[in-house]
Structures are given as structure tokens and as C-alpha cells.
């Protein structure tokens, strides 16, 4: 497997906006969107070695986690990215201590409990979810390799003190995680569905939750 690195060069002026980012040389994470359908757990049965199977399953699951719908809110800094090209969020957003944005410019200033359609614009909707927020700093994924993401996800000191069982539940039932597959008009969804994704996480855990190198 190729080691995937999701590097976001800090573009120019801090709040470089869509067009600037577009003109810049953001490395795209094309693999996440071009990799076809999300494989199911059974697709990995041929891998006899449990550890290798576990790693392969996580690799597959990471296609979801590193999709822009997910990783845009797991940024390297405390400011989200946005769009398929993962450009810095416009306007510049700071998570603040709450991860909900500073009072006066909170996430919910623009993002509602559901996606909000807009008319007359290239932007077809404003994404939304009742738990819309930035992932905690400890869960920054941008800039990490898949292996590093994996080790972060397992590390209770960095994953919100979640057990492996909690992880399965979180990935499979969390409403905000589930939003990724219903991102609103104008946005791509990660491959698969929340169910297939959760099943992969489940299988990864039951195969020993091994992390790719």
C-alpha cells in the first residue's frame, strides 16, 4: 500500500480564500474520491494474516476518514478547511475553546441543524448538522499518514477517551459522522455508507485494531 500523506500547504495569506487556494498548489487527496466503491468486510477475507487484514481494513476505512467531508473538520490547525479542494474556510474560522467558534462567529451563525439549500448561487447549500463543530485539536488528521491517523484514533488520550467499542458505536451511529453521506447539494459524499464504514471499523477492531505503518 502506498503511504498517503494529506498535506495542506499553508497557503499565502492566512485566510486565503477559495479562489486563491484554487490557484495555489493544494495537494489534492484524489485517492479518496477516485477509489471506487467502499469495499465491504468480506472483500478482505482473502487476507489470511489477521494483522495484515486489520491494517488493510483500516486503510479502506480511512478512505472515508480522509474524505473532505470528514477531514475538513479535522484540520491541522484550529481552523477548518472546506470544499473538495480543502481550502481554508471562508471566512477564517477559529475553533476557540468550545470547538464551536468564538461567540459572535459560532458555527451555528451559518450552519444549521440541517443542510440549508440556497438559491441563485454556485453554492447549492450550506451544510449543517445539529452537532456541527470542529474536531478537538487532539484529533487533527490533516497532515497525518493513515498510520498516524489510526494510532490517533486508538489512543484514548487523544480520541476523547473512547474505547474500541465506543469507536465502533461512534462511527456507526454518530449523527455528525453520518452527515458525511448526506452532505447537501453541491458536495460529494465519501464512498460507501455509514453502515459499511461502521462494519469496517467493527472488523478492524475484531482483527486486533492493527494500524498501517
Amino acid at each position: 500500500m502506498i503511504k498517503r500523506i494529506f498535506a495542506i500547504p499553508l497557503v499565502a495569506v492566512l485566510a486565503a480564500t477559495g479562489i486563491v487556494a484554487g490557484m495555489g498548489s493544494l495537494q489534492s487527496n484524489a485517492e479518496t474520491s477516485d477509489g471506487g466503491a467502499l469495499k465491504s468486510v468480506s472483500d478482505f477475507e482473502a487476507i489470511a494474516d489477521t494483522s495484515a487484514r486489520s491494517k488493510a481494513i483500516f486503510e479502506e476505512a480511512s478512505r472515508v476518514m480522509t474524505h473532505p467531508r470528514c477531514i475538513n473538520c479535522h484540520p491541522a490547525t484550529r481552523s477548518p478547511t472546506q470544499g473538495e479542494d480543502m481550502h481554508p474556510h471562508v471566512p477564517l474560522m477559529n475553533a476557540s475553546e468550545s470547538s464551536l467558534g468564538p461567540a459572535g462567529l459560532v458555527c451555528s451563525t451559518c450552519h444549521g441543524a440541517e443542510n440549508r439549500p440556497v438559491v441563485g448561487s454556485r453554492m447549492k447549500s450550506i451544510p449543517g448538522n445539529s452537532h456541527w463543530s470542529l474536531a478537538p485539536a487532539s484529533m487533527a488528521w490533516q497532515g497525518l499518514t493513515v498510520g498516524e491517523i489510526c494510532r490517533q484514533v486508538k489512543d484514548t488520550s487523544r480520541n476523547g477517551n473512547r474505547s474500541l467499542a465506543d469507536l465502533i458505536r461512534h462511527m456507526g451511529e454518530d449523527h455528525l459522522v453520518g452527515w458525511a453521506w448526506h452532505p447537501g447539494e453541491g458536495r460529494s459524499a465519501p464512498p460507501g455508507s455509514q453502515e459499511t464504514f461502521a462494519a469496517l471499523i467493527d472488523a478492524w477492531v475484531s482483527t486486533g485494531a492493527e494500524c498501517p505503518d
Binding site: A15, S96, P102, L105, T109
Partner: peptide, 15 residues
């Protein structure tokens, strides 16, 4: 935020 710095102000008013 009763005593904001320039950075605090910018972070909110950037919107």
C-alpha cells in the same frame, strides 16, 4: 468577551 484583543476581534469580525 468583555476584554477582547485585536486577535479576538479579528477572529469574530472576519465574518
Amino acid at each position: 468577551n468583555p476584554s477582547p484583543t485585536d486577535e479576538d476581534i479579528d477572529a469574530v469580525m472576519a465574518g
